[in-house]
């Protein structure tokens, strides 16, 4: 009987459950995300959403395991980083499963989930990652026994900046897809701060300038176009610098904002010019999902890593560099 790991994701707006075999084959990926008509995500509302959808999704996942004749080997959960109230919903459901099924509880860092699911689809084993989402903007690569952040945002995450700007334009959450849609119709570049600080970027100045342009009556289409052009050019530039410094032969784009085709086009162009590979994480694994948590769960399970229920505390702040990655045997 093939053994599987079930993974639970609940760090922010999405409650998701994934199932993965011990050799990393994803079998199941169901999720429910909180959306709003207007305004952003309130952590308490998101936690309520998770608590009300969790039983259904979990029931479906368990039924899948029994019906398909798999053996339940372990349950993994994203204990952080994320919003405290949301993380607790995932943690509680994972602890309950671990106790009732008498299977190991495996703690997973959410960011490592985004990186590993992208690495599963990458062409080389050690690409430079651009991890972009509502909560994260980081240039990451693996070296030694863990992932290292080579560059990151000094203030807001790119997805957060786009969502806030979309909210200013009157869109609900998630507003970024609507904003990206507007941007595609634009073609007039307005002057915005281009903040590249060594390997790092900064987005708050651009957000302030864009809000001011909107207040002064600029066309939202032009603002959306200029913000995405400028911000994505900045990101492509810091990734290119990381590639030049590290000599890696591939760039892998992951996280929710990986679905922005303009960003993928820019990165693809840059990689093409440098003669290196470029891969984008498949759309169903771009935004937060349980599959990536089950994938890292199966990797950790393979290394014999698990945690006792009583010490499975959530970690709202849990940096990528703090996580040992024992499954990659790296020479660099």
């Amino acid at each position: 009987m093939e053994r599987v790991v079930l993974g639970i994701e609940s760090t922010a707006h999405t409650y998701g459950v994934g199932i993965c075999t011990l050799d990393g084959q994803i079998l199941f990926n169901e999720k429910s995300s909180l959306t709003t008509e207007q305004g952003g995500i309130h952590p308490r509302e998101a936690a309520r959403h998770h608590a009300s959808y969790a039983p259904d999704i979990l029931h479906k996942a368990r039924k899948f395991i029994t019906d398909s004749g798999y053996e339940f080997a372990g349950v993994s959960v994203a204990l952080g980083p994320g919003l405290g109230p949301c993380l607790r919903v995932g943690a509680v459901s994972a602890r309950a499963l671990s106790l009732s099924e008498r299977i190991p509880l495996i703690p997973v860092n959410h960011s490592i989930g985004h990186l590993e699911v992208a690495r599963k689809f990458s062409k080389t084993p050690d690409p430079v990652f651009l991890f972009v989402s509502g909560g994260n903007t980081a240039v990451v690569m693996h070296s030694g026994d863990r992932y290292h952040v080579l560059g990151e945002t000094h203030d807001m995450a790119i997805g957060n900046m786009l969502d806030v700007l979309a909210r200013e334009m009157g869109f609900g959450f998630p507003g970024s897809p609507r904003l990206l849609g507007l941007a595609e119709r634009g073609g007039r570049l307005l002057d915005l701060p281009y903040s590249v600080n060594g390997q790092d970027v900064s987005f708050t100045g651009m957000l302030t300038a864009a809000k001011r342009l909107l207040r002064q009556g600029a066309d939202p289409v032009d603002v959306a176009y200029s913000v995405t052009e400028t911000a994505f050019s900045m990101l492509t530039e810091v990734v290119e610098r990381a590639v030049a410094l590290s000599g890696r032969k591939e760039v892998s784009l992951t996280g929710g904002v990986a679905r922005a085709s303009n960003l993928a086009d820019k990165l693809g162009n840059m990689c093409n010019e440098r003669g290196i590979e470029f891969t984008v994480v498949p759309a169903e694994y771009a935004g937060d999902n349980g599959a990536m948590i089950s994938l890292v769960g199966s990797l950790l399970f393979g290394c014999g890593r698990s945690v006792k229920v009583e010490s499975s505390l959530v970690k709202p702040r849990w940096r990528i560099e703090d996580v040992e990655v024992p499954w990659i045997k790296s020479s660099v």
Binding site: L79, G80, P81, P104, P107, G135, N136, A138, V149, E152, T153, H154, A157, G304, R305, S306, V307, K308, S311, L313, V314, K315, P316, R317, W318, R319, D322
Partner: peptide, 23 residues
């Protein structure tokens, strides 16, 4: 300390390392 999710920044956070058990 300004980077994302640096534990030292918040005093009330749970700053303990994740301790694994051998299975």
């Amino acid at each position: 300390l300004r980077g994302r999710y640096v534990p030292e920044r918040k005093l009330h956070d749970n700053n303990t390392e994740v301790t694994y058990v051998e299975s």
